[in-house]
């Protein structure tokens, strides 16, 4: 019997945040895995915004980072302190089409979704065409998100997950090593 969504949200809310944290790791370190999961001719990269949350009892510490790769290193620092990615901006290329969206870990809700431009509806007769075109574009985008999520979930319950966690820890720790080395110079 399917789980009650409210129970699922409360008990397994961490799954979405782990998914986004893994997605950041894998886009940076193993794009081949992303392509294998998301489909041929699909490129997924983390865009210009990441929000991280660290839950400590009842309180939640939230850090939002905007900008390019240099600023994103702050995110790795937050991960080292035990935070997880709560929301991320993703750029998705499907073939020659460019999309972007913000994905929220807690409930997988998507905001600021941008799809390739569709024709403007000027007369009512053009509505049907616009509906099919826009729905098709959104379905393509969500199919990529769903494929990535399904891949993550299967990895999450497999024997390979512990190896993946170790690799992620190494990646997260690597920034600390770089930072300490730069302080030493």
């Amino acid at each position: 019997m399917p789980m009650d969504p409210l129970v699922a949200l409360k008990r397994y809310g961490y799954l979405g945040r782990e998914f986004l944290t893994w997605l950041w790791y894998v886009t940076e370190n193993d794009p081949g895995q992303v392509e294998a999961a998301a489909g041929d001719s699909v490129v997924v990269v983390v865009g210009n915004r990441i929000a991280l949350e660290r839950v400590r009892g009842e309180s939640v510490e939230r850090v939002t980072i905007r900008g390019e790769a240099a600023q994103m290193e702050e995110g790795l620092v937050a991960l080292r302190k035990g935070a997880l990615v709560a929301e991320v901006n993703l750029s998705v290329e499907i073939g020659d089409q460019a999309y972007s969206l913000n994905l929220r870990g807690e409930d997988l809700a998507a905001s600021s979704i941008r799809t390739p431009a569709t024709e403007r509806v000027r007369v009512v007769d053009e509505l049907a065409g616009a509906v099919f075109e826009k729905a098709g574009l959104l379905e393509k985008l969500f199919s990529v998100v769903d494929n990535l999520f399904l891949h993550f979930v299967r990895l999450r319950i497999s024997d390979s997950w512990s190896r993946e966690v170790l690799a992620m820890r190494k990646w997260i720790a690597s920034y600390g090593a770089v930072q300490e080395a730069s302080r030493g110079n």
């Binding site: 399917p2 789980m3 969504p5 699922a8 949200l9 008990r11 397994y12 809310g13 799954l15 979405g16 998914f19 870990g105 807690e106 409930d107 997988l108 769903d146 999520f149 399904l150 979930v153």
Partner: peptide
């Protein structure tokens, strides 16, 4: 049914 992470996986 809202497609939150666990229900989405199901």
């Amino acid at each position: 049914v809202p497609m939150v992470p666990f229900t989405k996986a199901e």
